[in-house]
Amino acid sequence: MANQFSSVWTREPRRPRTSGLRRDQIVRAAVAILDKEGLDALSMRRLGAELDAGATSLYWHVANKTELLELALDEIWGLVDDLALDRTDSLRQLLTTFAYNLRAALLDHPWSATLIGRVPAIGPQAFRLSERLRRAFADAGFQGLDIYLASGTITSFVLGQVIPVIAMENSHGGRVDRDSVLRTLDKAAADYPEMRADYRSLMPEDPGSGHAMGFDFGLLCVLDGLEARRRAQQTAPPQPATGESATPPGTGR
């Protein structure tokens, strides 16, 4: 039997007790701990100490750490600036703004990227952003399921670019030294001299610049692909309704 899906967002938030903590206070304190000390440092006990509050005050609003992380993750989706998206003049500009905004939010709060897929992202900020993308794709001419597939594609691209960078830095305690990478490649990739030479001659000295270059290149490719898909969908002949023959009448087939 499959596990039941549940979320902190499926119930109404409780009103704070008299002189008690509000849920938004708890979430802000949790995000501050996550930003400063990382995911492993956050616990209900650690949060209670930060807020000078007992466990009862915390559990009045959240049942466990997983629910707390759901609330914290939704704050990150909220960092993608609505006003910046509204100032764009085309779908391409909007998606470019969205991609760079989301990338910046994840890199500024690296713990959040490790939660994608681990906790539900169905909070109000996540839905607000999803709806903004849905309207943008629909207004640009995308239809049906393509609207949601296209939205998922641009979001998945950002995550696919950012998560490996964060994972690498987490595993090495910060940015990786390029010279140490070259020394490792010289040994591990001894049978591939052309690739090693390309890496030395083509990759920027600063790893951060290399990651940014890769993001720029990939985003342009994704946007070009989505634009081609949009054009193809707009010029495609209408599909027959369910139950109708897809063969033009009079063909004898």
Score class of each variant (00 low, 15 high):
169 E>T: 02
137 F>K: 05
156 S>F: 05
162 V>F: 03
142 F>D: 08
126 A>E: 14
167 A>Y: 09
174 G>H: 12
142 F>V: 12
161 Q>V: 05
122 I>N: 12
175 R>L: 04
146 D>R: 10
160 G>P: 06
144 G>Y: 12
176 V>L: 07
179 D>N: 10
124 P>N: 12
149 L>Q: 15
170 N>M: 04
139 D>S: 15
187 K>D: 10
142 F>E: 04
171 S>G: 13
183 R>N: 06
146 D>Y: 01
132 R>F: 01
143 Q>S: 15
175 R>Y: 04
136 A>M: 05
142 F>S: 08
133 L>V: 10
147 I>E: 07
184 T>G: 00
169 E>L: 02
141 G>I: 13
135 R>G: 14
147 I>G: 06
184 T>M: 02
166 I>Y: 09
185 L>R: 09
153 T>M: 11
125 Q>L: 08
135 R>F: 09
187 K>A: 11
174 G>A: 05
186 D>H: 01
160 G>Q: 04
157 F>N: 04
135 R>Y: 11
186 D>Y: 00
155 T>G: 09
134 R>K: 15
140 A>G: 13
165 V>S: 01
159 L>F: 08
164 P>S: 00
182 L>G: 04
185 L>H: 01
138 A>N: 14
162 V>L: 01
150 A>H: 05
134 R>P: 03
161 Q>I: 06
150 A>E: 07
132 R>N: 10
149 L>V: 13
131 E>Y: 11
166 I>K: 11
176 V>G: 01
133 L>T: 05
140 A>Q: 11
170 N>Y: 00
172 H>Y: 09
159 L>P: 03
145 L>F: 00
140 A>K: 10
141 G>D: 15
143 Q>V: 15
159 L>S: 02
167 A>L: 12
127 F>G: 02
187 K>R: 14
165 V>K: 01
159 L>N: 03
174 G>E: 10
139 D>W: 07
164 P>M: 00
140 A>R: 09
135 R>H: 15
141 G>L: 13
128 R>Q: 06
174 G>W: 10
167 A>M: 11
127 F>D: 07
148 Y>E: 14
128 R>W: 03
146 D>L: 12
177 D>S: 02
185 L>K: 03
175 R>P: 01
144 G>F: 11
174 G>Y: 11
136 A>L: 07
139 D>I: 08
151 S>D: 12
160 G>S: 04
162 V>D: 02
173 G>I: 06
150 A>F: 03
173 G>H: 08
169 E>Q: 14
127 F>C: 00
148 Y>H: 14
174 G>N: 10
154 I>W: 03
